[in-house]
Design a protein around this nucleic acid. Sequence first.
DNA 1: CCGATTTTGTTCTCACGTTCACAAACTCCT
DNA 2: AGGAGTTTGTGAACGTGAGAACAAAATCGG
Lengths: 251, 251
Amino acid sequence: MTPARSRRPGAPTRTERGIPEATVARLPVYLRALTALSDSGIATASSEDLATAAGVNSAKLRKDLSYLGSYGTRGVGYDVEYLRYQIAREIGVTQDWSVVIVGIGNLGHALANYSGFGTRGFRIVALLDADPELVGDSVGDMVVRDFAELEDIVASDGVAIGVITTPAGPAQEVCDRLVKAGVTSILNFAPVVLSVPDGVDVRKVDLSIELQILAYHEQRKSGEAALAEVPELPAMNGLTDLPSVGGGFGA
Amino acid sequence: MTPARSRRPGAPTRTERGIPEATVARLPVYLRALTALSDSGIATASSEDLATAAGVNSAKLRKDLSYLGSYGTRGVGYDVEYLRYQIAREIGVTQDWSVVIVGIGNLGHALANYSGFGTRGFRIVALLDADPELVGDSVGDMVVRDFAELEDIVASDGVAIGVITTPAGPAQEVCDRLVKAGVTSILNFAPVVLSVPDGVDVRKVDLSIELQILAYHEQRKSGEAALAEVPELPAMNGLTDLPSVGGGFGA
DNA sequence: CCGATTTTGTTCTCACGTTCACAAACTCCT
DNA sequence: AGGAGTTTGTGAACGTGAGAACAAAATCGG
């Protein structure tokens, strides 16, 4: 049942530099699919099986995996555990990453309480907020600490990843402090465009934007009748009465 | 200061069908930038100004806007209010969209409490959960209702958009129910690949994936020393001791 | 009214991403 | 052992997106 691992002498000359960004974004999906298969007791899966589980095309999956190396066996498929390890290693989640969350409002609370964190290669080492009212509160099994402690925490815990769940206003300032303290990857939930120096990665999660994208397609579905209802060139004097669109996850 | 609006007789022959998906995804960002400029009392902005505010290249911004029509004035720039309305109309947020949230756990709570919803073209009409313990609880100014009421609510309020904030387990089932009730756009926070019939749009927000993408780049930054520390081909007998990677926003 | 200046809208080119299609490689059955 | 059947890995074709560059159109100063 377990396939030959085919560690052939002429090693696959692993992709020297640069897995395409689109592929990187899908690797975590494959990882999750593999974990699910593994939990179901499935030891081997074809690219077709995996692709179905991950919700992608099998050719795309094979090409994606080929950037990592040649980890399958022709005529058989992929060893689930083996491939899972390889992808985990490539992503970097075989080691643990320390994470700080800044801004313990509604969303910060939700993320802090999210139990499935530690088991996935990420460890929340601190919850920070600048509001003295919040500092000292306990959230789950952690206590909210003062944002002023940031530098110490980053230095002592080797934090590389920061999560910003503040309102839009202070987000850039928080970001600057994070970067100055040595954080080089930021996950931003605040509805602002953060500017960071080269070498720092920012990823954005924005609920409003997602909903607006859905709204766009939704509008298209309802036939063009809906479009015709809205005047293309409205009288300018009515413009200030518009609902305040835009914005996002602020306080 | 206000430019001529240039409603020339040969109308711009608005893009008949199909704004590129990449452009659609950026329109909400432009909308937000325009709203910010508008709030600052700025009446006119060049593509350069807008691009800076939105964090993109100005050529890209101009090309994106050109898909909507010719709403700028050469030598001058764009009228902020006018362009804001045009983008809002194109996205479809000049009208209100009714939204239901299913799964009132930590995250559902956070979204329900998010006050900046109603002002942005989205109206939460119901919070639903299947857990009898939760039904009847009040969250913000709303009350959690039984998931069984879904069909009635969708029918009476014309709900087109559903947000899934349940754990992974029930997500597909919830999704099926939503679709059957008539929801045609779904924003999914559960860490599963949802399968839906044609004509239904799904967008996914996944914290674990975002963090893992950051981790990948972070690993690359720390020089290749880090890569070398991890064996490329570990002994297979150690594999089951791996931390359980993958998964995501479950209970 | 005209030329200088500004800034848009668009064309062209290149890079990236997706999909097809098939040879290579492996297993299984006779 | 050999042929039939599977499934990977990848080359090639195609489509989409990004960025540079420039002509067209507008303003402004004289």
